[in-house]
């Protein structure tokens, strides 16, 4: 099969356009991606894009970049995946590099220093807010509450590397589910309507 480079370029440009318009984390990009590939280009059907977002959410990495990569692959194989990924990443990359450059130049200015004393407290609030948001869907029974509490305690007191904690999390889940099913305990693998994307879509469609 001859590679249609014009199509690859089109994929790249479509995702390039999405980048700069999205503030507020990866989730902000999802509706923009949907509009571009479903409504405007008609590359992917509405039903399929929901599934792609759900998979993109469970694969490591940012949901927006993952979704773009997945859609790129569906459209034009590995080349499409790379084109979409670079396209969605590039504008953000340039903006972050410019902001980093500016920040490193001005950070010793007394006004900027004072601003950042307060901003750091706000960043702590932003992290608590992130914990609150994910906690609302992740912690819903005694087992999940126990796992979350023990995790914080282990990290804080034993200084275990977070990567070790994440990897053991994968096994903890499998073991917990297995043990519960041995004892015939009922187990709810997900909080109802856990999937944020699915939930948002249902709201939109209603």
């Amino acid at each position: 099969m001859k590679t249609d480079w014009k199509f690859i370029l089109q994929i790249f440009l479509s995702f390039l356009k999405i980048g700069p318009a999205t503030f507020g984390g990866g989730y902000a990009m999802i509706p923009m991606i949907e509009r571009e590939v479903v409504d405007k280009k008609k590359w992917i059907r509405n039903k399929d894009v929901t599934e792609i977002f759900a998979i993109a959410e469970s694969v490591p990495g940012a949901i927006a970049i993952n979704s773009a990569t997945f859609i790129g692959y569906r459209l034009a194989g590995v080349r499409g995946a790379v084109a979409a990924m670079v396209g969605v990443l590039l504008p953000t990359f340039i903006i972050v590099v410019i902001l980093s450059m500016l920040f490193l130049i001005v950070k010793d200015n007394p006004h900027i220093e004072s601003a950042f004393i307060a901003i750091r407290a706000t960043i702590v609030a932003l992290i608590v807010y992130a914990a609150y948001k994910i906690g609302m869907t992740a912690v819903y029974d005694k087992t999940t509450l126990g796992i979350a509490t023990v995790t914080t305690a282990i990290l804080f007191f034993l200084h275990v590397h977070p990567v070790v904690v994440i990897i053991s999390g994968i096994f903890t889940g499998m073991v917990a589910v297995q043990i519960k099913s041995w004892f015939g305990m009922s187990i709810k693998l997900e909080k109802d309507e856990l999937n944020v994307v699915k939930k948002e879509k249902q709201v939109k469609e209603a």
């Binding site: 702590v124 796992i147 914080t152 904690v165 994440i166 999390g169």
Partner: peptide, 30 residues
């Protein structure tokens, strides 16, 4: 992937661990 039984049970443990991880980050940064 996301409908696989093993992936689902992995996430059953992973999600609260991630919550705990972010709570830890909040305390440390505070």
């Amino acid at each position: 992937f996301n409908e696989n039984k093993f992936v689902k049970s992995a996430f059953y443990g992973l999600r609260p661990i991630i919550t705990g991880l972010i709570v830890y980050a909040a305390i440390k940064f505070a």
